[in-house]
């Protein structure tokens, strides 16, 4: 099922004049989420950039109901809302958690894991800008190896936590990765998730100009390069069956991937990375692809 740009709804669910930085990837993601579900959803937002994007009281820049909740509680709260909807007999409204990587990979993971284990009927979307951006670019467990942040000023020494595979290990019905640079792929995945009963997890890669230190007009370019270099992989795991999607389908062969340096050199956060670190990062990416290849073959 392919979606074309012209078929997307004209209605906007992120209103003009919001407080997002220029070139914000979270805004693009939120806009696409609104268009994918055509406004029939309620958002649960823990502390993250989106709680800033909404704007200050008494105005809200998001046209659907939003519940702002404590950092660690988003998936548990969404479970409660879903239970409430079930009691009221409301079936056509999706409960969507929209959390950052900090609220997912670090602080929110216990509630997330709990909700996944209970197979709650919610969609959990993590928009991953790879650090705590709105508090001033502190490293998170989703920050990649070698990246500068204000708390890893000589480059992060650990590798990125692979949250989608952690979620897949919970054996939930649907796990997917997406990128804001490929919005139609993201919309298709959200729409597919909305049709599935049970816990759905989507990990959305979101290059942040402010925190990754690149010009605000390069958001999409950096996002595309992340996928084309193999640093970020688009796939979905439906009922345990692993499948590469979109451009990632053709990148299983290493020679088809662009050199990782193309992706790194656009970003200021990698400006001090050494050649040894790049080699280590390359080896890590190759290992990840081997893992995905194995998952694909074992079906």
């Amino acid at each position: 099922m392919s979606i074309s740009i012209r078929d997307l709804p004209l209605e906007e669910y992120v209103l003009l004049g919001n407080a997002a930085c220029p070139g914000c990837p979270a805004s693009i993601g939120l806009r696409m989420l609104g268009k994918a579900l055509e406004g029939k959803f309620i958002l649960v937002v823990p502390a993250c950039c989106t709680s800033i994007i909404q704007g200050p009281y008494p105005k809200s820049a998001i046209k659907v109901p939003v519940l702002n909740i404590a950092f660690a509680a988003s998936a548990a709260t969404a479970s409660g809302i879903r239970a409430g909807f079930e009691a009221l007999g409301k079936k056509d409204v999706q409960v969507v958690v929209w959390a950052g990587d900090g609220g997912t990979a670090d602080i929110g993971i216990q509630a997330l894991s709990g909700a996944a284990e209970r197979n709650e009927n919610i969609i959990y979307i993590c928009y991953d800008n790879e650090a705590y951006m709105n508090t001033g670019i502190q490293r998170s467990s989703a920050t990649p190896y070698g990246a500068w942040t204000t708390t890893t000023w000589r480059g992060k020494t650990e590798f990125k936590k692979n949250v989608p595979l952690i979620m897949a290990a919970h054996r939930v019905p649907y796990v997917a990765t997406a990128s804001i640079a490929y919005p139609l792929d993201f919309i298709a995945k959200v729409r597919k998730a909305a049709k599935i009963n049970g816990f759905k997890y989507i990990h959305l890669h979101a290059p942040c100009p402010t925190g990754w230190r690149f010009p605000s007009d390069k958001t999409i370019e950096v996002g595309r390069l992340a996928v084309l270099t193999g640093m970020w992989v688009l796939y979905e795991i439906e009922n345990g069956v692993f499948r590469l999607t979109g451009v990632s389908k053709s990148l299983l062969d290493k020679s088809k991937r662009k050199p990782i340096e193309d992706y790194l050199k656009l970003q200021g956060r990698f400006s001090k990375i050494s050649d040894e670190q790049i080699d280590l990062l390359k080896r890590h990416v190759d290992e990840l692809w081997m893992e995905y290849k194995h998952l694909m073959e074992s079906g």
Binding site: L15, L16, G17, N18, A19, P22, Q54, G55, P56, Y57, P58, K59, S60, A61, I62, K63
Partner: peptide
């Protein structure tokens, strides 16, 4: 009632941010 209502321009006319 601490509930925000959806409204255009929650952060003002953001066109003035532009360089």
């Amino acid at each position: 009632i601490p509930v925000s209502k959806p409204e255009e321009g929650a952060a003002g006319l953001t066109g003035i941010w532009r360089s």
